[in-house]
Design a binder for these strands. Structure first.
Lengths: 187, 187
DNA sequence: CCGTGTTCCTAGCAGTGCTAGAAAGGCGGA
DNA sequence: TCCGCCTTTCTAGCACTGCTAGGAACACGG
């Protein structure tokens, strides 16, 4: 019994290490550098071990990183907004969201560009809903405003990362976003 | 002389055919299916010919498709908005932008996810500026509002393509975007 | 018609994701 | 303590990727 438990624990550890390593490698050198061989090297096992944990292969590993990212994002947004409402809440949301994306570009890429996670569907994981809920709450509980607001934040994060809007005017842009999304003004 | 001209013309034709074929293939089967071998097959030449036209290889071909896309987008937006201003202009812009993205998902992907084109920089190609100008004009000539508005449209296009906002409520969402971005209300 | 210069293709490299089959290891029972 | 079994792990290889060196074939100008 004990040895079985130990093995299960070791297996779970390794599972987590694969995800963590993929994330590190991606954040260090970009997702192109995350190959099954390099991943196997870093965790000090051979490639086939990866498939024992993730039968779906590399895609499933990326999806796992993305899911972890969504969990973090949901928590980050929730604590950042706290009890705040109105303009304050929107400002906290905006800053937290854009800072999150800027500080973990690779994870954010996995979340929105790489992983094909089921979203506006029935089998959408709870974590994915939680993030949206945080946005919705900060924007006054309005579903449509939440969708549009999320799109704005996501678009801004994406365009910034690609260098398609200037970095210098970031602060002003954020204020402008808050103006637009403030539920008191929005409708 | 004549033969030289003919050869130059043939070369230019082939250049265009490579771009067009890459675009077709991507729109048909996704960018993963666009390999140098398949591309070479379709234009009925061998792989190395591609590199004669695009020394940068596949990346340069994708960038060419993206650039073509930006040209189309700029024209589409400009004609769609026409002389309209105020709320009408914003509505025309919103519809034109989102329809563009939805009707050519692969090209849109090339433009925003695949190609690394220099944007908010000095060497930004004219075509790229033109698209932004169209957005800016429709939003009353306000730089910051244009950036945020563009982000909203881009975010919405991206989230829709990934199925992360429901398709059913698309119409309402667009109206909501127009409400938000209407320069008369925005400030 | 023939040498010349360009155009083009064949063949191959290193790297990718993924997997079949063999080897090694630890386990429970005697 | 030893043995046989079964799980775990690795080695080796597949088909594919982007890309390129080298030689063959072609069309051209004289």
């Amino acid at each position: 019994m004990t040895t079985q438990e130990r093995r299960a624990r070791e297996r779970a550890d390794r599972h987590g290490r694969i995800i963590a390593t993929a994330r590190e490698l991606a954040e260090e050198q970009g997702w192109d550098a995350v190959t099954t061989r390099r991943l196997a090297d870093r965790i000090e096992y051979s490639q086939p071990v990866l498939y024992g944990h993730f039968p779906g292969g590399k895609d499933e590993i990326v999806a796992a990183v993305a899911l972890e990212g969504f969990d973090e994002l949901a928590r980050t947004l929730t604590t950042a907004v706290g009890g705040r409402s109105g303009r304050d809440g929107v400002a906290a949301l905006t800053d937290a969201y854009l800072d999150f994306a800027a500080s973990r570009p690779a994870v954010y890429t996995a979340m929105f560009d790489l992983a094909a996670l089921p979203f506006a569907a029935d089998e959408t994981p709870a974590v994915l809903r939680a993030g949206f809920e945080a946005v919705r709450a900060a924007l006054g509980g309005d579903d449509e405003l939440a969708e549009v607001g999320w799109a704005t934040l996501h678009g801004l994060a994406t365009l910034r990362r690609a260098g398609r809007v200037p970095a210098a005017t970031e602060t002003h842009r954020r204020e402008r976003v808050v103006d637009l999304l403030d539920p008191a003004r929005a409708r």
